[in-house]
Design a protein around this nucleic acid. Structure first.
Lengths: 156, 156
DNA sequence: TCCTATTACTTCGTGCCATAACTATTAGTG
DNA sequence: CACTAATAGTTATGGCACGAAGTAATAGGA
């Protein structure tokens, strides 16, 4: 038997190439549509969503190297490099070569960067309320997503 | 009580700003990591993942307008416009103004575009096998994602 | 009919994302 | 010690994504 929302042809054979049956499509749309909820919330803080994630990582630990941030956020250094320059231009972080290893760039929060955390505290609740989903549903979603991430990066 | 994979502080209060607790982060990483599985599979077809989704939409129905594709794929016309030009340059689609309404651009599959479908048939199974998740898990994931999409776009 | 509003698409600017090629520094080995 | 390999980050290129502004065509109302 097939699940309730799988698109099935008249013949009874599921169309494997039907857009609605693609998990990748659902993932892409879900990601874009949820992220778009953050735009109006992050705009007043002067952050994009990826920048917000970098700030979350730095609020957990600081300073951190570019490589370390890349591991935490699953982003290439080539993506982080210009992003961190924008955060520096916004006055939220400092970018300084490590004195013990000149290859490493220490990303440190500025005073303004640390203070921004207080304004960010309200964001998760705002988004959850806009989504209108229960914590149980969200917990379920998050653990399902973690399973997919594990599956997709197993052989990485 | 809290769920198994939620990050909780020593104090017992969950850190709402912890990276690992963010659904948006899990969504972004899951989307990127699953999409990255498609790259080596789509490369031989000369398609990027968004281009593949457009082809899926056109294989379901053709011709379609840019607006129609945008509704089906949840993409802005400003995103589709250059993407469709690249598909045209690749010889997969034709871009022609509708004769009944000159504002509308009819996107039509070329012979090569229709023929590409045969080579794409194998893709879903390939990806599912690489992911190594059961159909039940994938069905569950897809319906969960559809619920999130509905929640996030409710007020669109 | 004319004039305005709407619609469909395009263009522009900014930012994200990945791969590849490059520079500089450090580590490891003979 | 010198030479090579490995590591950290940057830059370049191509493509995706969105908002805002613009153009052309159509629809609707006075």
């Amino acid at each position: 038997m097939t699940t309730m929302d799988e698109h099935v042809e008249m013949s009874g054979a599921p169309n494997l190439l039907a857009l609605e049956n693609q998990v990748c499509f659902a993932l892409a749309v879900a990601s874009r549509s949820v992220l778009s909820l953050y735009r109006p919330v992050l705009d007043p803080l002067g952050l994009t969503h990826p920048q917000y994630l970098v700030m979350l990582a730095l609020w957990e630990q600081d300073p951190r190297s570019v490589k370390d941030l890349g591991l935490a956020l699953q982003l290439e250094p080539a993506t982080l490099s210009p992003l961190l320059k924008r955060l520096e231009a916004a006055g939220l972080v400092r970018r300084e070569r490590s004195s013990v290893d000149e290859r490493v760039l220490d990303i440190t929060l500025t005073q303004a960067g640390r203070q921004l955390r207080a304004r960010a505290e309200a964001i998760p609740a705002t988004i959850v309320s806009e989504l209108g989903m229960s914590s149980d549903e969200l917990d379920d979603l998050r653990s399902t997503l973690h399973a997919v991430i594990a599956a997709a990066t197993r052989r990485n």
